[in-house]
Simulated scan of single mutants.
Amino acid sequence: MRFEILALALIVGGCTWAFRFFPTKADLSGIKPDGILARFLASTGPAAIATLFVASALPMLTADVPVPLGLGTAAVLAVFASTRSVVMATLAGSVGYGLAVWLL
C-alpha cells in the first residue's frame, strides 16, 4: 500500500471520529437554538446522508436501467415528506431498493 493512501485514510478517519465524538461530549446547553452553531450541527446529519447518497448512486447511474435506485429514492422522499423522520425514510429507502433488486 502506498503511504499517501494510508495517510489519507488515517486523516479522514481521525477527522470523522473527532467530528462525531466531540459534539457528544460538548456542553451545548448554552448555545442559542437559532444561532449559527445550532444550525450547523442540525445540518450535519442531512449533509452526511446526501453525501453518502451521491457516493452510492453515481455508479448506479451508469447502468442501463437504474430502477432500484429510482424506487429507493422515491421511497425515501415519500416517507420523509410524510413523517419528517430520517430513520423511517432511510429504512423505507433500503426496503424499496431491496424489493426492487429482488423483484427484478
Rank of each mutant, 00 (worst) to 15 (best):
T90D: 00
A75N: 03
A81C: 08
F3L: 14
T90H: 01
Y97C: 04
F53A: 12
P59C: 05
A38R: 08
R84Y: 02
R84L: 08
L41R: 06
A26K: 03
A74V: 09
V54Q: 08
A38T: 07
A81R: 11
K32L: 13
L41Q: 09
T73S: 11
F40N: 03
I5K: 14
P23Y: 06
W102L: 15
D27N: 09
A42I: 06
P68C: 03
D34H: 03
L99T: 05
F40I: 14
V79M: 02
L52T: 11
F22D: 03
K32H: 13
R2G: 10
T24L: 13
F22Q: 10
L69E: 04
S85W: 04
V87I: 13
L99C: 13
I31D: 02
L37P: 09
A57N: 07
L69H: 01
A7E: 01
A47H: 06
E4A: 14
F3E: 07
A57E: 03
A100H: 02
V95I: 15
V65Y: 10
L37M: 13
S85D: 07
L28C: 03
A78T: 09
V67G: 02
L8S: 09
A75K: 06
G96H: 10
V65R: 13
T62K: 14
V65I: 13
R20K: 08
L69Q: 02
T83Y: 02
R39L: 14
D27W: 00
C15H: 07
V87S: 05
F3T: 13
T24W: 08
I36V: 15
P23M: 08
M60V: 02
F40G: 02
P33A: 09
F19M: 14
T44R: 12
D64P: 04
T44N: 05
T16I: 14
L91G: 13
V95S: 05
M60T: 05
S94I: 14
S56P: 05
Y97P: 00
F3C: 01
G14A: 12
A55K: 08
I11P: 03
L6Y: 06
